[in-house]
């Protein structure tokens, strides 16, 4: 009886060790990033979009550092969205109404793929406006 118990115990230990998980936890390392600058003009009531490829999963962030009218900085605001190119437009999944700033306006973890930034006037511009949008994303 004693031998049977011992054998059963040994079997249980072997079964447990054989089923042991080999997973280990590694610290998350953010890949090196690159910046793309999109500079253009937006007319009253219009929209535009810019597509870019994210080669590796990681953080994508967007800033709008300049917004000018006739060469002078303006406090007027536009709407900026991040999404995916679809059809003849950019299907936005998140957006923000903002003026020029050094702050990050949009940010998020993205898988690798093609994304787009859409800028549009939501009835807030009084005249054609030049803008400069900086997109930071992981590079290959």
């Amino acid at each position: 009886m004693f031998r049977s118990c011992l054998l059963g115990l040994l079997g249980g230990v072997l079964a447990t060790s054989a089923c042991g998980s080999n997973t280990t936890t590694s610290p998350t390392v953010e890949p090196a990033s690159t910046s793309e600058v999109w500079s253009s003009t937006l007319t009253v009531g219009a929209s535009k979009f810019y597509s870019f490829t994210v080669p590796l999963a990681g953080t994508v962030s967007v800033q709008m550092k300049q917004l000018t009218q006739n060469g002078a900085a303006t406090t007027e605001q536009v709407t900026l969205g991040l999404g995916s190119p679809r059809g003849i437009d950019c299907a936005v999944s998140g957006s923000v109404v903002a003026g020029a700033s050094d702050s990050v306006l949009l940010s998020g973890q993205q898988t690798s793929g093609v994304y787009c930034i859409r800028i549009w006037d939501n009835s807030q511009l009084s005249k054609t406006t030049a803008f400069s949008v900086t997109i930071n994303h992981p590079k290959q």
């Binding site: 049977s4 054998l7 059963g8 079997g11 072997l14 079964a15 054989a18 089923c19």
Partner: peptide, 19 residues
């Protein structure tokens, strides 16, 4: 004989647990 049967049971159980 009982020991052999018990050992076989343990092996089968261990195998099933490691699908």
């Amino acid at each position: 004989k009982r020991l052999a049967v018990f050992g076989l049971f343990v092996c089968v159980a261990a195998g099933a647990g490691c699908q």
